[in-house]
Each structure stands twice: as structure tokens, then as C-alpha cells.
């Protein structure tokens, strides 16, 4: 590859259905994934609400795009950083989030978790090591 692979981080800080940010972010990630860059997503503040399990949008007439997070592995987006302090503040734990896995092609397609729980300080480190940070 002639061009150098850049590290892109999509930062998600908004809850899923009150505004369009969360869904737009996911669409941009899926489109951007075609460009063979090193893509990660960060979930902090109200962004952690995007990943709760058991979302059912039938009653509000919106698409339940939480299912789409589980497709990210197909698009080689396998690093979803979730901030522990943001979960704690909202009374959530990892058990409240849906299970998101990817198949590791280099490890006989073993299924591995995409969600990585990080502290606020570790999240700051993740942000600081990116070439491009996009906020939603």
C-alpha cells in the first residue's frame, strides 16, 4: 500500500435516539471503513447509552440501529473503547451492554469481544494516539 494507514477515532458522547448524532456517526464509520484505515470508536459520557442491550424502537418509529454495532466486525472495526467512569456515573456495568464480537481472521476466525473497557485516563491516551479524531 502506497499510502500510510492512519488512525481514526470516532468519539461518541450522545445518547442514541434523542438526536441524530449517534446514527450518523455509525453511518460515517461504515462508509469510512471502506478506506482501509485503522478505525476505532470511543463511547463516553451519554455515548455509552448507545450500546445498551435490549433496545426496542418499535414504539417510537425509529430504526433500531443498535443491531448494526454487531456488524462492525465485518467492516474490520474491532476496537470499541467504552469508558468505565461514564458507565459508573450512569449506574451501568458491562453486563448492561450488548455483546459485540468480531471474527479474528488471523486466529482461525475465533470470536473475540470488540468492547474494551478503559478508564478515563486510558481513554485520554487512546485519543492522544490518533491521527484524526471525529466527534459526534
Amino acid at each position: 500500500m502506497s499510502e500510510q494507514v492512519k488512525k481514526f477515532l470516532y468519539v461518541n458522547r450522545k445518547a442514541p435516539y434523542g438526536t441524530i448524532y449517534a446514527q450518523e456517526s455509525l453511518e460515517v464509520v461504515l462508509i469510512g471503513a471502506a478506506f482501509d484505515q485503522d478505525v476505532s470508536m470511543a463511547f463516553l459520557d451519554d455515548g455509552v447509552f448507545q450500546l445498551t442491550k435490549g433496545q426496542d424502537t418499535k414504539g417510537i418509529g425509529l430504526k433500531n440501529f443498535s443491531a448494526t454495532f454487531r456488524a462492525l466486525g465485518d467492516y474490520e472495526v474491532t476496537k470499541l473503547y467504552v469508558e468505565k467512569e461514564s458507565l459508573d456515573e450512569r449506574g451501568l456495568t458491562l453486563d448492561d451492554l450488548q455483546n459485540i464480537e468480531y471474527e479474528d481472521e488471523d486466529d482461525d476466525y475465533a470470536e473475540k469481544p470488540s468492547i474494551r473497557l478503559v478508564s478515563r485516563a486510558e481513554m485520554a491516551d487512546v485519543m492522544a494516539e490518533q491521527d484524526v479524531v471525529l466527534s459526534f
Binding site: 459520557d45 478515563r120 491516551d125
Partner: peptide, 12 residues
């Protein structure tokens, strides 16, 4: 909006 506080919490 807590965005500024969150930003300061993540700035290095």
C-alpha cells in the same frame, strides 16, 4: 452541558 468538563477530564 457537561461537555467542557468532560473535555478537561480527557485533555492531557
Amino acid at each position: 452541558n457537561p461537555t467542557l468538563i468532560s473535555c478537561l477530564g480527557h485533555a492531557k
